[in-house]
Amino acid sequence: MTLARKVGDFLLAPWQLVFRHRAILTTTSLIELRMMYAGSVLGLAWVILAPLLLLAIYTLTYAYIFQVRVPGLTTADYIAHVSAGLIAFLSFAGALAGGSVSVIRNKQMLTSTVFPPELLPVRAVIVTLPPLLVGGLVIALGAMLYGSADTSVLALPVVMLLQFMFTCGIVWVLALVTLVLRDIQHLIQYLVIILLIVTPIGYVLEMVPPRLALLTYLNPLAYFVLSYQEILVRGALPTGKLATAMVLSSILSFSGGFWLFQRAKLAFYDYA
């Protein structure tokens, strides 16, 4: 009974935080986005424009300039494959970069009694979501018109939510660790490059030598990328091991990361 209760609390705690502060979280995330583009002529339109531009460039490069052909995939499918991987990756990489410094860059917020510092990493993840959402929508439409996706796209929001949870957990831990180990912020950019290599974005999993395939399975980001590709390229739902691995790593990361943050925050804030 008490154990079940403990597990329940462990799983629900981060949701309670986000739900309780949903108003301030939404407002401040919007402000953060507006700040990112403040002073520019197009302003918030960049939130939509940026991912579109990116997808256009990649489509042009891969499909029409390099004319990459992957056995078993039509050009449309290949574009969907690359774009799906790309939006997931860029959102994740952006969250790592912004999230790891989210507390240290906003240390004056630690004296705030209204905005809990726990929300800083969450906010950093939220501001990387628009490219994922906008990009996802565009790819879904394109893949339904020209490729193999169908009603499977209805599963996209679920995968995105799972990716959000997964990323939050990682970023909670990174944000704290960065307070004492400032080296993290320099390290992240190289970590991201490695991540780009071991994630099947430009290539398909079948092209990876079996001995190295293990590397892909150790990379949780690959679960999400593979799921997006499953949905958008094959018109199927991620099932079996893939879905299990994705759901488990998301929940564990979200609740575990939050638990760690809560346990360690007071010890770490002093170093900010």
């Binding site: 002073g39 004056q108 917020m109 705030s112 009694t113």
Partner: peptide, 13 residues
Amino acid sequence: SLMQTGIGFSNEM
């Protein structure tokens, strides 16, 4: 606390 003047302020806005 009124220690954190400048929170939420952006020069471009």
